[in-house]
Simulated scan of single mutants.
Amino acid sequence: MTSAPQDPGAAGDGPAARPPLPEVVPADGLPARVRIHEVGPRDGLQNEQTVVPVEVKAEFVRRLAAAGLSTVEATSFVHPRWVPQLADAAELFATLTADPELRGVDLPVLVPNDRGLDRALELGARHVAVFASATESFARANLNRTVEESLAMFAPVASRAAAAGARIRGYVSMCFGDPWEGAVPVAQVVRVCRALRDMGCAEISLGDTIGVATPGQVEALLTALGTAGVAPEELAVHFHDTYGQALSNTLTALRHGVTTVDASAGGLGGCPYARSATGNLATEDLLWMLRGLGIETGVDLDRLAATSGWMATRLGRPSPSRTVRALSVPSHKES
């Protein structure tokens, strides 16, 4: 990882002061390496009021990949009426898969149903995701179905994706709290996770959609999943930072053996179906913590922070990431 860039706003006649990088102090019981599942282009931009042009989205993905992110969730093949910010999914994905700079980069896409899967497979998608809910209220709000009806809808999608040779990821929303139902029983979450695993999902991402989880809840859910036969290697965690708990929750998951963490460059995102959901865990904030713990990611913090600054200018607002702000990375001037 390179040194932090100079702060152009530092006072004095000599060289500008540079923010220090964290001292590397490893801790026991943590993995040597973590894979970051970058969700900024999909989960980040889907909740922005600004509709980002397809060419800017494509450049965003290129810059994320150039920073060292090997998994970048590209888009979602949902009906444009549901998420108008992602109405350009087919055009964007075709652009990305034709780009030689992105060869070797995993570009997962969300598919809500058979039609979405058809569109994704026609364009050569090799990694797809379905998104379930642990609660009835959110299943109705997000999918207009009960939890059981949504799982029944996903089963043939997963089967067809597997037959086509695609890897399948399962998202579970509202794992720790629901704005309509309150606390979510652990057994409820375990049941949905096992159903997704049994229908062929190779990885299950546990979503704290409204950001209310605390480390004790994370520990309790991961312990229950292990007892039910769902191993940490099959899991990812996806925390929102509504109450500033995303990093502490992530550290708890890492201590429990989870090695895949979802994060969004610059802290972009939220959820269009849950107004209380704020931004995702910022990838830069996650990298700062992991670097200090001596955990490898393969991602260059400086390049990533510069990319988030560049995107923030396109969105017309500062980056929500504390680390991006602290590093004072100037936005790129090129278009």
Rank of each mutant, 00 (worst) to 15 (best):
L225A: 02
A213M: 08
V237A: 08
D114L: 12
A98T: 00
G269W: 03
F131D: 10
A16W: 06
T259V: 12
A220C: 01
F60Y: 03
L293C: 07
R33I: 03
V261Y: 12
T252R: 12
L301T: 00
G294R: 06
L123Y: 00
G40A: 06
E122G: 14
M174E: 05
F131Q: 08
N249T: 13
H37Q: 12
T323D: 06
D13E: 15
E38D: 02
V54Q: 11
A152R: 05
V329H: 01
A94F: 01
M289Q: 13
V72L: 02
P330I: 01
L254H: 14
P318A: 05
A183Y: 05
L222I: 11
M199T: 08
I168L: 11
A164D: 07
A32N: 08
V109T: 02
E203S: 15
V34N: 11
S276I: 01
V212A: 05
W288R: 11
L286Y: 01
N142E: 04
P22M: 15
E48L: 03
Y273F: 09
L222F: 15
S3D: 15
K57R: 07
P41L: 05
L21M: 13
W288V: 07
L92I: 10
G104N: 10
V218N: 07
V51T: 04
I204S: 02
F138R: 11
D241L: 13
P272G: 15
A90D: 12
L151M: 09
V230P: 03
I168C: 07
A253W: 01
L107W: 04
E181I: 01
A246P: 10
T252V: 04
A120H: 01
V184D: 11
G292K: 07
E296W: 13
T278I: 02
M199N: 09
A16H: 14
A183N: 12
L102F: 08
F60N: 02
L121V: 02
S264G: 11
P272F: 06
F138A: 15
M153W: 10
F93M: 02
R191Q: 14
G165K: 00
S76G: 12
A263K: 01
R291W: 15
W180I: 02
G104L: 10
R62W: 13
R169I: 06
D43F: 03
A10S: 15
P20V: 14
G244C: 09
A58W: 02
V218F: 05
L254Q: 12
G44W: 01
M199W: 14
T307C: 05
M311L: 13
R103I: 10
A65R: 01
D99N: 04
L301A: 06
L247A: 08
E136S: 15
A58L: 04
S308H: 15
A152I: 11
D7P: 15
D208W: 04
A183I: 13
A195T: 07
R35G: 12
A161I: 00
A139R: 04
L251S: 02
A155P: 09
R62P: 14
A187K: 15
